[in-house]
Every structure is written in structure tokens, then in C-alpha cells.
Design a protein around this nucleic acid. Structure first.
Length: 473
RNA sequence: GGUUCCAUCGUCUAGUGGUUAGGACGCGGCCCUCUCAAGGCUGCAACACGAGUUCAAAUCUCGUUGGAAUCACCA
């Protein structure tokens, strides 16, 4: 039997990191076995539907190369793949489940809106459970609103095996007789997931561990229909800190937020793969194709993992440095928008590439290029470089003079020129180069040294800035 | 509160009875160096606690503590 997994997000308009990681594990479990990865949209809660949300889901999965074999957009043999379009299917199976004794019709008023947070937790004992099937059908035929509610008739302990957590035992007493089919005729997750997973031939159900405690209820439904339950893979949550999950509510970054901040999708994916899973080797950098080769669900972790932004940033830096210069340049280009056309952009990229861990850091690195910032003359005093204003003035005069005649405006040639100036005049390299750097950037530290700044700015701008500096010294 | 689950450096983790408890991020130092980075080397840093079992426990058992999840006509 081929392995089939599914990613079944709600269209809430936000691809959060935990969700994406679950999708990744689903994808990898399927693909490691040469299986199929299915995309299904769980939109049974009409109140939460967000316009355009499915497009974000498609775009995100495509961006990280997690391509689905069947889904709403491309179809497949067991569609439709959007739950709201499967409404008649749920109704049919709900009625069947009632016939099989696994559920009953319930006419109670919807209490969910007036639920009291502080109310003591009491198990709901549904009076409608004792209404005869004939009478229930009559009331339904008369147009009375109803829901289908699960029956938990079993006693004792439910036992099931989870690939991550092992054997889990839960008493049937703990299970509540939840709503399966809502008044609006749409199923709850508790029903839809079972029907769809079965009908779609899903072999491995991967989901957050918050579903562990309700898994026995789903097994009861599989059992009532005489269906084989899937292999369960419950994964621990991704946390913001020790007590809070990563969530939109907390303002935590989504996949698209991270991309907007200059993180590379490949790096994000690599990082989250390692949040709760490890390959058993010391390798940390993986492409998605490499993950397909080495992934096994057995190495999934049981405990929650805290999202470490520092490590993501480091890993993103690794990916940025691994880019070819051309590729990095292409990615950096949008951040150069405001710079004058005279800038040596390609060279700028080569200087920036090893110095930024996210593309978003670029603007702060290059702000001095567009416009020479104001700076205090005291910046020319630097004890490590052995410079002060007087030495700086002399250094700038000598540099300006020497640079005027340079025609090969390359870093090597410029560096040789200024080194020669230093040697001829009895200065240390830094005594010449540091003042030039300040004069060109107004900063103590810059991406690249003095001569690299000169290359970036170009000859005309370099000479102009040196002269400007001289004018105020 | 009931139930279920979890527990190795600050963080992500390796480890399945015998290891100097390993790696990575971060942090400190050194080297390199026209600053800052990058790169190389290096240092600090963990088995939550308490009982057992065993010649031997981070690894097995029990308890304690701490944490999480769940108990919706949300998923």
C-alpha cells in the first residue's frame, strides 16, 4: 500500500510556522516512501474563513517545493478536496453512523455561544440520546434543527499506538459525546477528519499533539464503520517560549513575515525541519531533497521545541553565503532601490554577502551610500588606528592626491595605491585607511574597508567625499 | 480540577546500562585582517529532584516538582 499523507489547513490567511512544519513532516513521510502528499482545505467553520487564504497556502507550499499530488486546484481521484464541497458526503455518513449506533440526533439548543469560562467542567449528558430513532426522524422531517452527536457507549480503556509517543491509553469515561454534524449541515473537524482521511486513503495522519486526547473518539468512528484507522503521528508544538505556543495571536512571525524580513524560504524550511526532528548525524544543512532521503518519523521528538530566532538567523546566513554572487545580487537588488546609479552594485553585493544574515539587514548596512551622514570630527580620533584630526587631515590630503590619478578603480589597485602612500610617508596602513573610511562613510565600522567603499562609491563620489571631509577638517 | 503527555548546556539536540555526556546556535578568547564581517582555532555551559533495581543509571522502576495539552455546533 502506498503511503498517503495529507496537509489539511484551515483557510485562515496565515501560514504559521508550526503548521508549515507539520506540512513538511507530512510531505516527508510520504515522499521518503515514494508516497503521495495530498492537500485538503478544511473550511467547515464558515466564521473563520478568510478570502484569499487558500492562495497563501498554495504559494507557500510551492515556494518551499512541497508540491502536492492531489488538491483542490489540481483535483485527484478522491475529490473534492475542499470540505465545504463535500457537504453531502458528511450527511450521508452521519446518517449511516446513526444507523450503526455510533451517533444520535440531538435537538438541544446550541450552548457554545454562552459558554462560561469559569463554569465547572461537567460532562454533557445529552437528553436527546434517549429519543427513539423514529421520533427523531419525525422531528427532523418536521424541519426541527438538529445536530448529530457521537455516542460513547464503550467502557474501559482505549489503547492506540502513536509513532512519536508510543502506546497511549485513555479511558472512555474521559471522552465527551461531541457534535459531529452541525446545525448548518457541515461536519466538525471531529467527524470530517475521519470521513475524509478514510475516503481519501490517508495512511499516516500527522497532526499536533493536542489531538491525542480525542483520538480514541475517532477510532470509535472508524470502528463503527468497520474501517482501518490510520497510523498516527502526533507531533509536539513549536513554542515561542517555555509556556506559550508560537501563534498569530502573540504576534509571532508567519512564514510570509519571515520572507518579508529577508529570510530565504529554503533556510526557513531547513530550520523548522530540525525543530523536533534530527537526522541522527551531525549534519544540519539540508535541502528538501536531502530531507526526503534521510527523513524518518522515528526520529521525531516528543517534547515541544522553542523557536530560536538566533539560530534561524544564523542558518539563513549560511544559506545567503552559499548563494552564488549572481544569485545573491539578484536577491539583494530590490534593497538597492534608493541608491544612485553611479554605485558599483555588483561589487557592493560581493561586500555585503558575507556580512548580512538576512536580506532585511541590507538597508542599515548601506544607508551611508545614498547620502553622506553627519558625523563628529572626533570620529577621526582612534587610538587603535593611531589617528587624530591632524593625522586624518594629512592622510586625506595624501589620499586624495594619489587617488586622483588612479585609472584602474579596482579594490586591489586602490589598496596598493594607499599602501604605497602610507609606506612612502612613514604612516601605518591604518593611519591612512581609517581616515579615508570615515571620510567616505561617516562611520567607524563599515561593510568593507576604505578601498572597498571607494570602489562601491565610484571615483567621482569618492574624490568628492574626500574633498568635503578636507573642507571641514 | 479530571485525564493524557513531556523533562540532557540559555536554546535546538545526540545519547537506548559502562562516554572525559558529543554537536549546533548564542556568549567569551585567540588567529587572520584597511574597520566590521566571513573563515580557522579555542573556552564557558546540561542529565529538574528523591528513592529504588543493578557491580554499574542521563539511560530501567516508582514518587516529587515543574511544564504542556485536552474537557466547543474551532480546527
Amino acid at each position: 500500500m502506498t503511503t498517503r499523507t495529507r496537509f489539511a489547513p484551515s483557510p485562515t490567511g496565515y501560514m504559521h510556522i508550526g503548521n508549515l512544519r507539520t506540512a513538511l513532516y507530512e510531505y516527508l513521510i510520504a515522499k521518503a516512501q515514494g508516497g503521495e502528499f495530498i492537500l485538503r482545505i478544511e473550511d467547515t467553520d464558515q466564521k473563520r474563513y478568510v478570502e484569499g487564504a487558500t492562495d497563501i497556502i498554495y504559494a507557500t507550499l510551492k515556494r518551499v517545493q512541497m508540491l502536492w499530488d492531489e488538491g483542490p486546484d489540481i483535483g485527484g481521484p478522491v475529490g473534492p478536496y475542499v470540505q465545504s464541497e463535500r457537504k453531502p458526503i458528511y450527511k450521508e455518513y452521519a446518517d449511516k453512523l446513526v444507523e450503526l449506533g455510533g451517533a444520535h440526533y440531538c435537538f438541544c439548543k446550541d450552548m457554545s455561544d454562552e459558554k462560561d469560562e469559569n463554569a465547572p467542567i461537567v460532562k454533557f449528558d445529552d437528553p436527546c440520546k434517549h429519543i427513539s430513532l423514529d421520533e427523531a426522524k419525525k422531528r427532523i422531517a418536521a424541519g426541527e434543527p438538529y445536530v448529530v452527536r457521537q455516542n460513547i457507549n464503550k467502557k474501559g480503556t482505549s489503547v492506540f499506538e502513536d509513532m512519536v509517543y508510543g502506546k497511549i491509553e485513555i479511558d472512555y469515561d474521559e471522552l465527551d459525546e461531541g457534535v459531529l454534524l452541525k446545525t448548518d449541515g457541515l461536519p466538525t473537524y471531529n467527524f470530517a477528519n475521519v470521513i475524509d482521511d478514510h475516503l481519501m486513503g490517508i495512511t499516516h495522519v500527522v497532526r499536533g499533539n493536542e489531538y491525542i486526547s480525542s483520538t480514541p473518539k475517532y477510532n470509535l468512528i472508524y470502528e463503527a464503520f468497520g474501517w482501518e484507522p490510520p497510523v498516527y503521528v502526533h507531533v509536539p508544538p513549536v513554542m515561542k517560549d517555555a509556556q506559550h505556543k508560537l501563534s498569530k495571536r502573540n504576534g509571532d512571525a508567519s512564514f510570509q513575515d519571515l520572507v518579508a524580513k529577508g529570510y530565504l524560504p529554503e533556510a526557513i524550511l531547513n530550520y523548522i525541519a530540525l525543530l523536533g526532528w534530527n537526522p541522527g548525524t551531525e549534519q544540519e544543512i539540508f535541502s528538501i531533497d536531502e530531507l526526503k532521503q534521510v527523513f524518518t518519523a522515528e526520529r521525531l521528538n516528543k517534547s515541544p521545541a522553542i523557536f530560536d530566532g538566533d539560530k534561524l538567523k544564523w542558518m539563513n546566513g549560511v544559506y545567503i553565503r552559499a548563494l552564488s554572487l549572481d544569485e545573491f545580487h539578484k536577491q539583494a537588488l530590490p534593497y538597492y532601490k534608493d541608491l544612485p546609479a553611479s554605485v558599483n552594485f555588483k561589487f557592493l553585493s560581493s561586500v555585503l554577502q558575507p556580512r548580512v544574515e538576512t536580506l532585511g539587514e541590507i538597508p542599515a548596512e548601506i544607508d551611508f551610500i545614498k547620502k553622506m551622514p553627519e558625523y563628529p570630527l572626533s570620529l577621526y580620533q582612534n587610538k587603535k588606528m593611531k589617528t587624530d584630526e591632524a593625522i586624518a587631515k594629512r592622510a586625506l590630503e595624501l589620499s586624495l592626491n594619489a587617488l586622483k590619478d588612479v585609472s584602474d578603480w579596482s579594490n586591489e589597485a586602490l589598496f596598493e595605491t594607499l599602501k604605497t602612500v602610507a609606506a612612502n610617508e612613514g604612516y601605518k596602513n591604518g593611519q591612512i585607511l581609517y581616515p579615508v573610511r570615515v571620510a567616505l562613510s561617516g562611520k567607524e565600522t563599515t561593510p568593507g574597508g576604505a578601498t572597498e567603499l571607494a570602489v562601491i562609491l565610484g571615483k567621482a563620489e569618492t574624490l568628492k567625499r574626500l574633498q568635503d571631509a578636507l573642507n571641514i577638517l
